[in-house]
Simulated scan of single mutants.
Amino acid sequence: MENQNRTPFAFGKRNYQIMLLGLAVMAIGFILMAMDSEPYGYGFLGLTLGPIVLMVGFIIQFFAIFAKPRKDV
């Protein structure tokens, strides 16, 4: 007996939207680190702000993976 309600995707639409948000935040973090004008990225952007934004992006990805998909969508 097959289950007709199964989707071919591992995650729901909401999960993929949160993942895209997380990827965008991570990209902003990498861009901030690259914009640092100090040599070897030893300024505020390269050592403080960029890594914090990048970590926020990884946390968003974590929640995107573990968020339960909605049943009504």
Rank of each mutant, 00 (worst) to 15 (best):
L45G: 07
F66A: 07
F63A: 00
A64D: 02
V73H: 10
I31M: 14
L32S: 10
Y42V: 04
K68V: 02
L32M: 14
G46S: 07
F62M: 14
M26D: 01
L45Q: 11
F63Q: 00
Y16T: 01
A27N: 02
Q4L: 15
F58W: 15
L32D: 04
Q61G: 07
F62T: 06
G50W: 12
M35E: 03
L54Y: 09
G29V: 05
A64G: 12
I65T: 03
I60S: 00
K68D: 09
L20S: 13
P51Q: 09
T7V: 01
T48P: 02
Q61D: 08
A34G: 13
V73P: 10
F11I: 01
E38T: 03
N5A: 11
G22S: 13
I65A: 13
A27K: 03
V56Y: 06
F9P: 01
V25F: 08
M55D: 01
N5Y: 11
L20W: 12
G50L: 14
L54H: 07
A24Y: 09
I31F: 14
A10G: 11
I65L: 12
M1E: 06
T7Y: 12
M19S: 06
A67V: 11
A10L: 15
L54A: 05
Y40S: 09
L32W: 01
P51Y: 13
I31Y: 14
I60Y: 04
Y42T: 03
I18Q: 09
G46T: 01
E2G: 03
N3P: 08
G57Y: 08
A24G: 15
G22P: 08
I31T: 07
M33C: 06
G57Q: 04
I18S: 04
P8A: 03
P69V: 00
Q17G: 11
A64C: 03
N5L: 15
N5R: 08
L23F: 11
M55K: 02
E2P: 15
L54T: 07
I59K: 10
I28N: 02
M1I: 03
Q17F: 12
Q4M: 13
I60L: 15
V53R: 04
P51G: 12
E2I: 06
